[in-house]
Design a protein around this nucleic acid. Structure first.
Length: 462
RNA sequence: GGCGUCGUACCCAAGUGGCUAAGGGACCGGUUUGCAAAACCGUUAUUCGCCGGUUCGAAUCCGGCCGACGCCUCCA
């Protein structure tokens, strides 16, 4: 089946056909490194990770670029507050972002270009926009994009530019511009910027926010590329502005498919830093969350619906994951008898993939996975599973893991624990139930539980 | 004011015109087991926020209402 993705540009599910055969060029909006990323940011990054994993599974080669925004109002403000240089601040949070991403099993991008390393590219693009009459230099030497000269403005947000209503925030803007809707390409230096500035044809200053993504995506992916992702909040103004400035600069199309993930809510409320209702990865890690549990919770809702993240759902996710671990362990340990018949060829794997191919329908894919698990247990109980079925099952679980990343890696049993397990097994053989149960309790206290099965005793961490 | 999303069991969540409304978690009963765990079997929505309409037929399309929510200049 072909891939279908919802394109924000058309507001419809569309067949995905890459511009270049077998090669997908993907740009995902990265973090602004002024603070640690929170679980909401990671919902978006996880959605993008799933998208990429699916593209790779479909045998596309993927060139994935994720920007690091290391210069903007927030980074400057934060570095002043913390009394450290902008570089010190952004390096700290960039490193943290990478370690959180790795811990969450997010596949790395091919390149993470930083805004501050691409000031020249941005200046060139701004110059081009000035030359073509889509931008102007204001009295204070800032450069703005002139929306009134760009009639296509409003493609993503579905609004005619003349209907854009200005909010109070615009009135507070300290820069001078012709029209309130015009956005900054280059911001003239202000004393509050400290020693953060670059030279430009228009004087000292720093780039506006939107221009970095246009300049860097074009540099690494070309003028026109396949997919650009981000959170829904980026639709306007960020992505709208990116489209305007990119298309105005090149007179060509910019991005074929825009994909956006919905917001995550926390304990039923909108996540907001001012209210303090957000979780960082390190917070969850401290509470004992595993990457798999977080991934499961975030992938359990479709990426285009609002999802509520609640600490109370943790057990639910752990139980659900445990079921996957159980079937895997069953497939690995049960002894296949020669006379076992072959079970029915499973259609579930195909259906699982089809669900993901249909605009990344993870809840449906998970449902199919659980139907498969149930069927597999049944067939095994009926002795209808032979070597080929077992191998097919294990292969399927590998596919599931490659796509969703929700199956924990095998845990090695420490020697000390194994010795206790053996000791109990001996007592059990002698039908010395008291001793066996005592050791089992001892193991539980040490954090390991036992399952006696017909194929032997299985030891699992709690 | 403009643009847009959502409302399916105790909780989470698929399904967007047609076989008995997926699946997970939770709960209860049973089988199995030395006991436990795991697994299996069964039970939990004659009904999809409410009211109308279209249709042979709607959770699914249309209209209205109620409720929750997002964006409208720098928040993933």
């Amino acid at each position: 089946m072909t891939l279908m993705f919802y394109n924000t540009l058309s507001r419809k599910k569309e067949k995905f056909i890459p511009i270049e055969k077998n090669h997908v060029r993907l740009y995902t909006c990265g973090p602004t490194v002024y603070d640690s990323a929170h679980i909401g940011n990671f919902r978006t990054f996880l959605f993008e990770d799933l998208l990429k994993r699916l593209l790779l599974f479909k045998n596309y080669s993927v060139t994935h670029i994720m920007n690091i925004t290391d210069i903007d109002d927030k980074t400057i403000r934060r570095s002043n507050e913390d009394g450290i240089t902008l570089k010190e601040l952004t390096h700290k949070y960039t490193d943290l972002f990478f370690s959180d991403s790795t811990w969450l099993k997010i596949l790395p991008a091919d390149k993470y270009p930083k805004a501050t390393d691409h000031i020249n590219e941005m200046i060139q693009m701004i110059q081009k926009l000035l030359d073509r009459g889509f931008a102007y230099v204001a009295n204070d030497k800032s450069v703005f994009f002139k929306i009134s000269n760009y009639p296509d403005y409003g493609k993503l947000i579905y609004i005619k530019s003349n209907l854009l209503q200005s909010s109070n925030r615009i009135a507070d803007d300290e820069y001078e511009k012709d029209s309130p809707q015009d956005f900054a390409l280059w911001k003239a230096y202000k004393p509050a910027d400290g020693d953060v500035w670059w030279d430009s044809p228009w004087g000292k200053g720093r780039p506006g926010w939107h221009i970095e993504c246009s300049a860097m995506s074009m540099k690494y992916l070309g003028q026109y590329f396949d997919i650009h992702c981000g959170g829904v909040d980026n639709i306007f103004p960020h992505h709208e502005n990116e489209i305007a400035q990119s298309c105005a600069a090149t007179s060509a199309n910019f991005v074929k498919m825009w994909m956006h993930s919905e917001h995550l809510q926390i304990e039923g409320d909108k996540m907001s830093k001012s209210e303090g209702n957000f979780y960082r990865i390190e917070d969850l890690k401290k509470q004992g969350y595993t990457p798999e549990v977080i991934r499961f919770l975030l992938l359990n809702g479709h990426y285009r619906t609002k999802l509520n993240f609640s600490l109370s759902k943790r057990t639910e996710a752990e139980q659900a994951i445990q079921r996957i671990i159980n079937i895997k362990s069953k497939l690995k340990t049960f002894k296949i008898k020669e006379e076992n018949k072959s079970g029915p060829i499973s259609e579930h794997q195909k259906n699982f993939i089809s669900a993901l191919e249909d605009d990344l329908d993870t809840p449906k894919a998970l449902a199919i996975l659980y139907i498969w698990i149930k069927d597999t247990f049944k067939e095994i109980d009926k002795n209808n599973f032979n070597k080929i079925n077992v191998q097919a099952g294990l292969n399927f679980l590998e596919v599931v893991e490659n796509l969703l990343g929700i199956i924990p890696p095998k845990i090695n049993i420490p020697e000390k624990i194994q010795k206790l397990v053996d000791k109990r097994l001996y007592a059990k053989k002698k039908k010395n139930w008291e001793v066996a149960d005592l050791i089992r309790q001892e193991l539980i206290d040490l954090g390991w539980k036992l399952e006696d099965t017909v194929d032997g005793t299985v030891c699992k961490p709690i």
